[in-house]
């Protein structure tokens, strides 16, 4: 009995220290992260222009959303953008990592160069590429002209604006994911690959038979991460196209921004936010389930 008392005394002291350490961090997470997340959910059932008091409107924001062609356009654009950017990012960065992992000299220089866009802000990158894609004087069209291709009005065309943004996205992100792949590749035990070689497997078979299965969890992780990041694309659209031409590059987050901070329809914007959150959650869960089954070793 006495024993239990003593240890409680001590335990309580430790608990006090822990509370002291956690008070500020937890209060912050609660106030600035958890509460806004919940509030966002609640706001989606209201109509509020930030001036008049908020008004509960039930599901009407969502009803409006369903009938809003711009919303559907934004959703489609976002899917298009993600669908284009993610395979590009994963494929290119994996290929680069595979090459760099071949005992290349000057790996450090290549790594630095490929990483350069990663540290550059999306705003700067966007502006830089807006100039690259300039219809009359841009370097991209100059290069294409060199190959005998007619100039394309990249950012001014409903067809080409989104592909241009995808190119920019892939260009900026590959350095980041390449490093992750490189770390994973260096974790693949050499002896496994060697064993496969002794068994007579060619390089292609060795890659698909040994290396790829070993790094598939990382590939899986990278895909999810890239997907979640690209789903929230905003900066390029903001500085390069403003969602145009004719809403052809309007993404969900950009639409959310417009509704919330240009038209001050916070309720409606929150409804969009909720859709965004749901989509990301669903993708995560679905990929998770698939990953659980498919990722092999």
């Amino acid at each position: 009995m006495k024993a239990r008392l003593a240890s409680m005394r001590w335990g309580r002291r430790r608990t006090l220290v822990a509370i002291g350490l956690l008070a500020i961090p937890l209060a912050g997470v609660l106030v600035f992260r958890i509460m806004p997340a919940i509030a966002s959910f609640a706001l989606s059932f209201t109509e509020w222009n930030l001036i008049a008091p908020p008004e509960f409107v039930g599901l009407s924001n969502f009803e409006e959303l369903v009938g809003d062609p711009t919303f559907w356009q934004a959703l489609w654009n976002t899917i298009y953008y993600v669908g284009g950017a993610v395979p590009g990012i994963v494929g290119v960065s994996l290929a680069l990592a595979l090459i760099l992992n071949r005992g290349i000299r000057g790996i450090k220089i290549f790594r630095t160069v490929y990483f350069l866009p990663v540290v550059s802000s999306m705003v700067a990158v966007g502006i830089m590429w807006r100039w690259m894609f300039n219809a009359q004087y841009g370097l991209v069209n100059a290069g294409l002209g060199f190959l005998g291709i007619e100039p394309i009005n990249w950012l001014g065309s409903q067809t080409w604006a989104m592909p241009a943004l995808i190119v920019v996205t892939v260009w900026r992100e590959i350095g980041f994911y390449m490093i992750i792949f490189l770390a994973a590749l260096q974790g693949v035990p050499r002896h496994l690959v060697e064993a496969a070689r002794l068994d007579g497997a060619g390089p292609w078979q060795r890659f698909w038979g040994v290396t790829f299965p070993m790094i598939s969890p990382v590939t899986f992780f990278v895909s999810i991460m890239a997907m979640i990041n690209t789903f929230q694309a905003f900066e390029y659209m903001y500085v390069m196209t403003e969602g145009g031409p004719r809403d052809s590059t309007l993404t969900l987050v950009y639409y959310l921004y417009l509704q919330g901070f240009e038209y001050f329809r916070t309720g409606y914007a929150s409804a969009i936010a909720l859709v965004l959150f749901t989509i990301i959650l669903v993708i995560t869960i679905v990929q998770w389930k698939i990953g659980e089954r498919r990722v092999v070793y």
Partner: peptide, 17 residues
Amino acid sequence: EDISGGTLELGGQVVND
């Protein structure tokens, strides 16, 4: 480590706490 039972003395002083 806290002492769950009994007493510990150092130089004649109980130092459990």
